[in-house]
Amino acid sequence: MLMTTPRLLILRLFNVTFGRIGPINRAFRKALVRGLIQSKKPGERYVASSRFFDPREL
């Protein structure tokens, strides 16, 4: 899921309000991991490659 302007605005608004509170912050992070990663089947998960350059790609 790419970052968009509305998502960024909502996230920042949360970060500087309720996100200041440790337990809420941690619960939010857990919910994100569950919703974006763990709930998806392995084949449905799209994770951007974090690979850097490898000469074997040439």
């Binding site: 970052m3 302007t5 799209y46 951007a48 490659s49 350059f53």
Partner: peptide, 29 residues
């Protein structure tokens, strides 16, 4: 280094994007 910043996965929706902060780290919108 420039290639490392570039999304070179043909199946990616951001194929060709050279801004890793956007396509990989997702820290920018």
């Amino acid at each position: 280094r420039a290639l490392g910043l570039c999304d070179r996965d043909k199946h990616s929706p951001t194929y060709g994007c050279v801004d890793r902060a956007y396509w990989n780290y997702r820290t920018t919108d």
